Simulated scan of single mutants.
Amino acid sequence: MEEDQAAAAFDSSVTDFHTYEDFLDSQITSLDLYYLEDEELARQLVELGYRGSGSVLKREEFEARKAAAEAFRLSMRNHLNSGLTLASAGKELKDNFLRALAEREEANRSGKMTSIIFIRDQNSLGQEISGYIDYSHRLRSEDFEPYFSGKKRFLPKPTDLSFYNWKTQVSVSNTTANYQVIAENSTSLLFQNRRDRKMVNVDPKASPGDNSSRSPIQSDLYMHVVIFDHITRMKV
């Protein structure tokens, strides 16, 4: 089905595998098994990063990405069934970042997912700027057709979750409808989801947190892009 194909494209590093153990097995080489002679030990070493033929995700990050892919699959199904026209619909999206935005548009509009987007690039004055953007918030407050059509650049603003101008050293942070900025951490910003109270940790050396995943995006349009996807789960 179309939504299944879209979900597979969303994050093939997890959608190709039914379980975390299957994912670990895919990283084990025949040479590992030859020397270790123990499949479970080989899995443990892969999870710890000592063995394996590819990049390794921790169990919680694998499960968060799996949940994000499933949420995207369901959102695509709802979109196809509802006939809702998205800002990205029908656009020729040649850059990875624009495709990543399109993949997450419906889920962020519906509230199934609240993505935080980090962007570092230059503004119209040639000044380097960076910031964290609440994608869902921006979708509700702006017309995204110019972004997806390439008429306008998607950059952080002083009204976003955080904004920093490296030339003027202006630094701003703001609470949005989805996130509260927690600046008490000495090494990195934390963003607390205001719906389920879960923390999203944007430190690249740390786990992004429960129900969250971190996805660096290679883009020809921007210097540095990372997307943090958080699957919202209400307390019961």
Rank of each mutant, 00 (worst) to 15 (best):
A6Y: 08
L24K: 04
K112Q: 15
N185C: 13
K112H: 06
R214F: 03
A177D: 14
Q5T: 13
T168M: 04
Q180P: 00
L86C: 09
N165S: 02
Q127A: 14
F17Q: 09
E21H: 07
I182H: 06
S171T: 12
T175E: 13
G150S: 05
L74S: 10
K235H: 11
R104L: 09
H137I: 01
I217C: 03
T232D: 08
Y132G: 04
E61L: 07
R120A: 12
Y164S: 04
E47Q: 15
E63D: 15
E145C: 00
T232W: 01
S186P: 12
T19D: 11
W166Y: 15
D134W: 03
T168D: 10
A8K: 15
A69T: 02
A206D: 15
E142A: 13
K205I: 07
A8I: 15
K152P: 02
A89W: 03
E70Q: 13
S173C: 03
I116Q: 01
K151G: 05
L190R: 13
W166I: 02
L139T: 07
D25E: 12
M234P: 01
V56C: 06
K235N: 12
R214W: 01
F191L: 11
L98I: 05
L33C: 08
K235A: 12
F163M: 03
R233Q: 13
A8E: 14
A100N: 09
S149H: 01
F144D: 00
F144E: 00
Y50H: 09
D220T: 13
R197I: 11
S141M: 14
N78R: 14
S115Q: 01
S171E: 13
R99M: 10
V236L: 09
Y179R: 03
P158G: 03
E60D: 15
F17K: 06
E37V: 11
D25L: 06
G126N: 04
S53W: 04
L48I: 02
S55F: 11
S26T: 13
